[in-house]
């Protein structure tokens, strides 16, 4: 990945494209932790990619690319979420229905994954995906989310307990 980042910084569009394709699933999953609708997820990821493309030359450490782009994505997701929140009083039902329709239409929706998203608060979802999927340390997560390390540790611990209950309850 670092080689691709280097080439992308030199203006190699193909290298940048390959970088994005390499992490497309991760970006999707992270966006899904915050956003319900597929349109919003696509918008967040799209804006993230454009911003990354425009600013990649400013990235100092090549090995930091993925963390950097995840940070951008989390911020974009938060912006869109806040923007949507203003409309929730009117459109709440529509958003919920839309999400349900997406579930029904999914060809191979993973039930356990969907349960985690539905039943965990966002603040727990985001830390577990960064910790378990992206394998960031507590320190790195605290830098990405701009929260104290102690808060990260707390949230991971509580998330583990909640998930255990969810999974046991499901069975």
């Amino acid at each position: 990945m670092e080689t691709l980042v280097k080439e992308a910084k030199r203006g190699d569009k193909e290298a940048f494209n390959k970088l994005i394709i390499e992490i497309e699933i991760d970006l999707y999953k992270i966006a899904k932790m915050r956003l319900n609708s597929e349109c919003d997820i696509e918008e967040a990821v799209q804006e993230t990619i454009i911003q990354a493309y425009q600013n990649i030359k400013k990235l100092r450490a090549n090995n930091y690319f993925k963390t950097w782009i995840i940070k951008i994505l989390i911020n974009k997701c938060n912006s869109i979420y806040k923007k949507n929140k203003k409309h929730i009083s009117i459109e709440n039902n529509i958003l919920e229905n839309y999400y349900t329709m997406e579930e029904e239409n999914s060809i191979e929706s993973n039930v356990e994954f969907e349960l985690l998203i539905k039943d965990l608060d966002y603040k727990y979802r985001i830390v577990i995906i960064l910790y378990y999927l992206e394998k960031y340390s507590n320190k790195e997560i605290s830098q990405i989310l701009n929260i104290p390390i102690s808060t990260v540790k707390n949230r991971i611990s509580r998330a583990r307990q909640k998930i255990k209950k969810i999974l046991e309850g499901d069975k």
């Binding site: 999953k29 999914s106 356990e112 994954f113 985690l116 577990i128 995906i129 999927l133």
Partner: peptide, 10 residues
């Protein structure tokens, strides 16, 4: 948790 998060989703 790791297994669930790494699993294929739609």
């Amino acid at each position: 948790i790791e297994r669930i998060l790494k699993s294929d989703i739609y």
